[in-house]
Design a binder for these strands. Sequence first.
DNA 1: TCATTCTCTATGTATAGACTTAATTTGCGT
DNA 2: ACGCAAATTAAGTCTATACATAGAGAATGA
Lengths: 255, 255
Amino acid sequence: MTDRRTGPTSPKAQNIANEVRRRIIEREWRQGDRIPDEADLAIEFDAARATVNKALQLLADEGLLDRRRRAGTRVTVDPIRKATVSISIVREQVEQAGLAYSYRVVAKRRSPIPADIAARLGLPEGKMLVHMRAVHYGDGRPFQLEDRWINPPTAPGLEEVDFWQLNANEWLVRNAPYLRAELAFSAANADRREARLLQTQVGQALLILHRTTWNDRGPITTVRVACQPGHLISTEAGYDRSHWPASGTPAPEVS
Amino acid sequence: MTDRRTGPTSPKAQNIANEVRRRIIEREWRQGDRIPDEADLAIEFDAARATVNKALQLLADEGLLDRRRRAGTRVTVDPIRKATVSISIVREQVEQAGLAYSYRVVAKRRSPIPADIAARLGLPEGKMLVHMRAVHYGDGRPFQLEDRWINPPTAPGLEEVDFWQLNANEWLVRNAPYLRAELAFSAANADRREARLLQTQVGQALLILHRTTWNDRGPITTVRVACQPGHLISTEAGYDRSHWPASGTPAPEVS
DNA sequence: TCATTCTCTATGTATAGACTTAATTTGCGT
DNA sequence: ACGCAAATTAAGTCTATACATAGAGAATGA
């Protein structure tokens, strides 16, 4: 019960990280500067070296610090700027927006893969895969259009599933965990089919999302998603605000 | 436990994390299952509890495990799927593609902010900010088009900088570190000006990137970047493979 | 039946101490 | 001067121990 000035006892390592972060942000320690070593900081903050280590590791992960054995710890010259995009299930997105979700399979058949898909998956051209096209709706209005290729050998149990009824994305996510994923964004003008399915005009700019996943057995699936016009995919990047003095920002709508 | 041929000694916590990850991926431990507690795993892997804790924390951060006090550790029902996008400096992007970088400021002036920008920055409408438009080129061909608003009070030293010569993005990144950033993707049809500056056609689908950054003093800058047609922004997500055995290697013996 | 309190357990965090490892520095020999 | 090896240093990791804390589940009471 000794008086800790911290108020609602927050983790010591976090406090140290916050203080160091503050010194960097406020230019007390400048870019490229070498900061005191762990032992010194441990004394300053009255903590064990392991605790300081944890704090500094955290900041290094954030990209604010550059640490090397023997050479010490320096403030990163230009901080790594990265953002995380969370890849959610379409249904969740739609429902979170307060809309009734529905789903319609437009086409499904076994088909030989064309060259571009083969290259993306790293499979021989012409191999037979499952190809399907579907539309996701929110309150009856088209939300997303997906064009998917599935590699059955990597998704055991797939053959028994009736994708005319079940959502492919959802089944795959739950039943074929992936080890690696690639995600890419681009833009394209709607062609005639896309315009029809999304109930928009030919030429309308669409945000396109390509996603490919692999597990230990090889590529699982690759999908090209065309979003409804005006759709926004947002992300947030920055330092962990959970232990940072309040600023009062609402949660971002992440797609 | 006799077999101790770890080869190139890799960190114990990593090995434990890898082994646990393997058990999850290979469905030895299934989604929703409760896994043995730290103490038990510590015995199994002949490690201290703190080491096991570190390993499990790592997997929890990856989104594979769900940990709660007293309730124990369970395999996440549906693993968080997230990808990181690195926000690079345009010049680096261009140069990395092996092109000669150049930059041209099209317009720069102080101007009252319109409603949409004000809302995004959380500033009162009509406030005077610096507004500039610029084009980034690779080998003389347009690469990106930026439309930027800068809030000088949050970027000390800004007034002395000659943005007609220096790249704004770069100066800001190096001289006004941010605490928080928002990044959003969308698509839009090129309008007349955009088409002209990007040397493309009116109506061409463009990948649009919105980026806004804040520091402790408030919003620093917001920028709308229109990418050259066909541009792709890609990301990669997955579990850290740096300590993962090469394919074909038998099950890892944790040491 | 339901709400309240209590108890106990698994995780969360911190600690001192020891050892390992990478890389800078220093010093030696040529 | 130069190249090379040894000393030194700061981070990286692990351990054993301790205590804190959330929260599931049991015990309690109305």
